[in-house]
Amino acid sequence: MKKIEAVIRPENLDAIRVSLQEKGIIGMTVEEVQGRGRQKGVCLQWRAGEYCVEFLPKIKIDLVVDDKDVENAIEAITKVARTGKNGDGKIFISPVEQVVRISSGERGKEAI
């Protein structure tokens, strides 16, 4: 099992949800986060002059999938989240030791 953490542009969340669903991946956890990368920050206006915000609002999606679904998930996300410009985000993949479904007590792949 693998955990996929995808930091994305906020406006792409719903398209990614649909795209993942088409690959049979339904469950996920979503957080509003701030971050920076090659896109860096943005300068906004104060009453006169401007100030710069160094972290931009992003959304982070956490999902856990069976090993065989990892490439499907990556494809589903990148297909709709890619504009080709700085700021599209990143995907991090890491191994997951155990998963427990609270309602039934199922473990492992069955619980995903």
């Binding site: 206006q45 104060w46 009453r47 006169a48 002059g49 401007e50």
Partner: peptide, 16 residues
């Protein structure tokens, strides 16, 4: 107009 000239027409600027 001043805020527009320097960057964008500012709401905070109009109120001020």
């Amino acid at each position: 107009l001043l805020s527009w000239y320097h960057k964008r027409p500012s709401v905070l600027g109009a109120a001020t």
